[in-house]
Design a protein around this nucleic acid. Sequence first.
RNA 1: GGUCCCUUCGUCUAAUGGUUAGGACUCAGCCCUUUCACGGCUGCAAUAGGGGUUCGAAUCCCCUAGGGAUCACCA
Length: 457
Amino acid sequence: MNVITRFAPSPTGYLHIGGARTAIFNYLFAKKHSGKYLVRIEDTDKKRSSEKAIKAIHKGLNWLKVNSEYKIIYQSQNFNSHIKVAYELLEKGFAYKCFLNSDELEKLRIKSRENGIPIKSPWRNKKEQGKNQNKEFVIRLKMPSNGTTTIDDIVQGKVTVKNEILDDMVILRSDNTPTYMLSSVVDDNNMKITHIIRGDDHFNNAFRQIQIIKYLDWNIPYYAHIPLIHGTDGTKLSKRHGATSLFDYHNLGYTSEAMFSYLLQLGWSTKNDQDYFMDRATKLFALEKVNKSPAKFDLKKLNHINAKILNNMNVNDVYKLVIDKFKLSLSNEEQKRFKSLLPELVKRVQVYTDLEDEFDWLFQKNFFCKDKNFQSQLQKHNLMLKEIGSRLQKCEWTIESIKNCLNQYILQNSLTFKVIGPILRMALTGKTNSPDLVSIIYELGCTITANRLNYEY
RNA sequence: GGUCCCUUCGUCUAAUGGUUAGGACUCAGCCCUUUCACGGCUGCAAUAGGGGUUCGAAUCCCCUAGGGAUCACCA
């Protein structure tokens, strides 16, 4: 089979992480089967759609590297074909005009809900609309009233529903625009989508939409309704759970590789493999292995994956991420210093934006320790720092010599590294923890090191 | 409320009738160590509850409880 999948977001806001995961699944499934992966913007609701949102979605997809290589499809551009189908359904008797006004509809809705029956307009069985000819109407699909509908969903399994619970959904609005329920089905058919992979909040819709397909005798696609992502409290992920926009995670210092890997393993895995990167995932991905139950979004695990990825990345790539993020412009010397120290610094953060804390001592001219808590200690050991500083100035500038120089000082003064270490660290970095001191001294260079050790506190 | 779906350590999950129920994250402890990390090792911790079927059930069936999705001229 020639697999074709699609990711079909509605451009009403940013790309949220649930949508991002749906995109990943669609992308991977298509790649795995050497098929096509398409993106379709579902902008049937013009009032809620925006250009800005479309841009945000592309930005997100590009960042995650799951954008389509094919032409992006805009649903609104196919309106005419959708409308045509609505009238075709009407002509064939599978749909009907409904002239209910909003008050009448509201009453019907309340009644339906009380009785636990779906909405079916009284116009369903009226032969001709005669005097209503000029009134506003919607077109509703005439759902089968008996029998059952079964969908063999790749993720959810075989599910059967009684047709009597299906409501006569609106397929064409009174302003002559098609609804999502119609447009989506028509576009999927036109695009020859073979596998519809989407959030399971659409599962109920599938039983309604499939009726259109049956009436028109179109090919029924495979369905795979993947579970939603939940917040830590078990409810559908929303803003109160923290960032829900995919791109927020970029701004927070997560790599797209980490997001990809994490989102993918939220609901899918093979055996005990833990990290799935693009190339491996495309080989292994199988919809059948997707869990039916929703998974909770766990930032701690994301942090862990991100830290691991950051540490396995090429130094230049991490460097670039940080430079871009903070718009740093560094001298050659500073660049070299940063890159040399970066592998050690990265071990200490989970998101690369946390590296910002290191910028002061790394790049600030005339740096000195500003932390009040350490001032007295620095004053107390003023002489020691100066002595070490002057010894270092005479030292050949290699890691080995610097190390020897410090060791000599320790030996001659009957000290241990534990005694001088913390003081040196405060003077050089202003902090109580840092990478190895010898490397720091080496990378800072003789002049800067000496200046910092000679500072009068 | 109707309909549909779900339920294995706190979290993500493995185990498709036979395992001391495995791994990963988190947490705790230890080792390494000039600090903080990295890394390594060890530990805590689960089959929602109740009935069946079976020699044997996390796994199959039923009931209960809990959770979720959906019920628009939104998508």
